[in-house]
Computed example of a mutant assay.
Amino acid sequence: MQETSLFDDGRVSVSSTRFVADGKTHLISDITSVRLKHTPARRGIADFLFFIGIGQLFTPFSSILPPLLCFLMGFIAWIVAKPKYIVVLVNASGEVNALTRSDQESIKKIIDALNEALSLK
């Protein structure tokens, strides 16, 4: 079978015979299925800073600056925290987390290309 390219963005490539991501090559013939795994954003530090900022507002003898700084840092931490989307390859040995990105659309395109490659084998 001739190898045809199904997806390539410079860092990740999917062809009819192999999947290359993060410098690792996975043979399509070894893969039995592919799935998307979602890990929510970790916003515990942001929540903590929010609550500290709100708590400081209600303490006596407190200036407005420390609560505002905590609240601002919490807001920035909340915005910076991103969910992670993972391409999970299932093979005879188990599951492999092959690629992790915070961009869901690119992961969906890669999974679609992998499913197309699996249908060609």
Rank of each mutant, 00 (worst) to 15 (best):
M1D: 07
M1P: 03
Q2L: 14
T4V: 15
T4A: 14
S5I: 13
L6W: 06
F7C: 13
F7I: 14
D8W: 08
D9M: 10
D9C: 14
G10D: 14
G10I: 10
R11K: 15
S13P: 11
V14T: 10
V14N: 02
V14Y: 01
V14K: 02
S16H: 04
T17W: 03
T17F: 03
T17A: 06
R18P: 04
F19C: 07
F19R: 08
V20N: 06
V20S: 05
V20A: 05
A21W: 02
D22N: 15
D22F: 02
D22T: 12
D22A: 15
K24H: 09
T25A: 10
H26W: 06
H26L: 02
L27H: 04
L27G: 03
I28H: 01
I28M: 01
S29P: 02
D30E: 13
D30S: 14
D30Q: 10
D30H: 07
I31Q: 02
T32G: 01
T32K: 05
K37Y: 06
H38L: 06
H38C: 04
T39C: 05
P40N: 10
P40A: 10
A41G: 12
A41S: 11
A41N: 09
G44H: 08
I45D: 00
I45N: 00
A46I: 00
D47S: 07
L49Q: 01
F50N: 01
F51E: 02
I52W: 03
I52V: 15
I52C: 08
G53K: 00
G53Q: 02
G53C: 04
I54W: 04
G55Q: 06
L57A: 04
F58R: 01
T59C: 04
T59D: 07
P60I: 13
S62L: 03
S62F: 03
S62R: 07
S63L: 07
L65D: 06
L65K: 01
P67M: 02
P67R: 01
P67N: 05
L68D: 01
L68R: 00
L69A: 06
C70W: 03
F71I: 13
G74M: 00
A77E: 07
A77K: 02
V80A: 11
A81H: 06
K82Q: 15
P83V: 14
P83L: 09
P83M: 08
I86H: 14
V88M: 12
L89S: 08
V90K: 14
V90A: 12
N91R: 07
N91F: 05
S93H: 12
S93G: 04
S93K: 15
G94M: 08
E95K: 13
V96Q: 11
N97G: 12
A98I: 11
A98G: 14
A98P: 15
L99V: 10
T100V: 15
S102N: 15
Q104W: 09
S106A: 14
I107Q: 07
I107N: 07
K108S: 13
I110L: 11
I111C: 08
D112C: 08
A113M: 12
L114P: 04
N115W: 00
A117C: 09
A117R: 11
A117H: 08
L118C: 09
S119V: 12
S119R: 13
S119T: 15
L120T: 12
L120H: 09
K121C: 05
